[in-house]
Amino acid sequence: MSYPPPSPHPYQPPQAPQPDQPTQERTERWSAVATVVSAVVAVLTFLVGFIGLPAAGVSSPTGGTATVTATVRETVTATETATAGGSSGTTEASPSVLDSVVRWAGPILVGSGSGFDLDTLPPEESTFTGPQDFQANVSDDGTQANFPYGQMAVVPRDQDPSYEDCVLLAKTQPQYPLISPGNSVCLITGEKRVAVVTVTAVHREAENVSMRVSIWEKPIE
């Protein structure tokens, strides 16, 4: 039996076709770009979580917490300061501030021969047996108001007296005056409060007098 002569080339298994050189270079380039992008994203993520810098439109929770904490501390400090200042101002209020506090102000109508108690809130007409701070009558000619009772003094015309002015007038120039509409008197009440009483109209036929009263809260010493 005869055999065929041996082949001059040894047997080699078939191999997959290799990509051409341009395709391989593009693949390697995109792989490198993807690696760089991943590294940049990792760095940005680290910065956002560590120092609270906003990135890609996302606010950092750490940065938000720091801002809220600072605001709360500042608000508490301001509140404590205001409270302490308010307490100090209330206990150490100057006399001029207290002298300007008005207890009551408004119009009253006094019947001829009647009295008024200005220490009640609001002031009210009183009987002869009750407390009276002043009385008023319509004058005989019906043009003035007569004050026959009370510790009072006439206010100079066109003057707007202060608390101190009224105290000084009522103490140093007491009188029982006849007052025309538009004029005022300063008087001291039974509980040592100070008031300004201005006659606004005298009603002869009705036998009463319209007045405007302003009473300070602070009693005199």
Score class of each variant (00 low, 15 high):
residue 211 M to R: 02
residue 81 T to I: 11
residue 146 N to K: 03
residue 171 K to D: 15
residue 30 W to T: 10
residue 95 P to W: 01
residue 218 K to M: 10
residue 143 T to Q: 15
residue 43 V to W: 14
residue 73 R to I: 09
residue 42 A to H: 05
residue 101 V to Y: 09
residue 137 N to M: 10
residue 104 W to M: 01
residue 63 G to H: 11
residue 48 V to K: 13
residue 10 P to Q: 08
residue 151 Q to Y: 04
residue 51 I to R: 09
residue 100 S to E: 13
residue 171 K to A: 12
residue 3 Y to W: 11
residue 197 V to L: 15
residue 117 D to A: 03
residue 95 P to N: 02
residue 97 V to Y: 12
residue 93 A to D: 01
residue 209 V to N: 01
residue 173 Q to W: 09
residue 21 Q to D: 11
residue 146 N to Q: 13
residue 200 T to L: 07
residue 16 A to P: 06
residue 193 R to I: 04
residue 35 T to N: 05
residue 173 Q to E: 15
residue 26 R to P: 00
residue 89 G to W: 11
residue 126 S to G: 06
residue 143 T to E: 15
residue 152 M to S: 04
residue 173 Q to K: 13
residue 187 L to R: 01
residue 113 G to M: 01
residue 89 G to R: 15
residue 103 R to K: 04
residue 211 M to D: 03
residue 58 V to I: 15
residue 150 G to L: 03
residue 74 E to Q: 13
residue 141 D to M: 09
residue 47 L to V: 14
residue 168 L to C: 06
residue 52 G to Q: 03
residue 1 M to T: 12
residue 155 V to D: 06
residue 155 V to M: 07
residue 36 V to M: 09
residue 65 T to Y: 13
residue 129 T to F: 04
residue 198 T to G: 05
residue 71 T to S: 14
residue 104 W to A: 08
residue 12 Q to M: 10
residue 113 G to E: 08
residue 189 T to E: 00
residue 49 G to V: 01
residue 75 T to K: 11
